[in-house]
Amino acid sequence: MNDPDAGGAGRSWAETAPLSAVALRVNDEVRRLEVDPRTSLLDALREHLHLSGTKKGCDHGQCGACTVLINGRRVNSCLTLAVMHEDDEIVTIEGLGDLDSLHAMQRSFVERDGFQCGYCTPGQICSAVGMLAEVGAGWPSHATADVASPRIALTDEEIRERMSGNICRCAAYPNIVAAIRAVAKAGTQ
């Protein structure tokens, strides 16, 4: 790291870092960016693409507000750099559904009041969509009674365990679980 007292008029390593070109595929659109290599995917979405539906709650992988889907898997976008995602398929809350056609999970959150302030909500919803896919693929969790079983029963405990990376300070948890449960039920009928 740079030593500020070591002369060189405080020229930091940052100055020598050139901008990096990256093409992100966000919500089915290719977006070409020139970003500082230090730019997190979260900041690229929010500050460069103005897709502010993806939220920053901690910037350290501790709250889940920044959850997006990358190639179908949920990822904390604050913990990964934008330049690492050339060619990856990124879906944010804006890509799941819009005001005219809500995604089933979005609609279910509205109906069950799965939020209050709404700040953790995009992360909860992206996480819930990714989580259901993980369960569908048979990935076990700490709450799975039989990890050898190819089919995982989506109990409330499963939902809660798998959603625990998404903090809601408004504590809409019971309603979030109800919203996810309703979508899962509808999907299996």
Binding site: R46, S52, Q106, F109, V110, G118, P122, I125
Partner: peptide, 13 residues
Amino acid sequence: GPLKVTGQAIYAY
């Protein structure tokens, strides 16, 4: 609700 679940509710930053 619809604004919040679609990421269209705009917060200070």
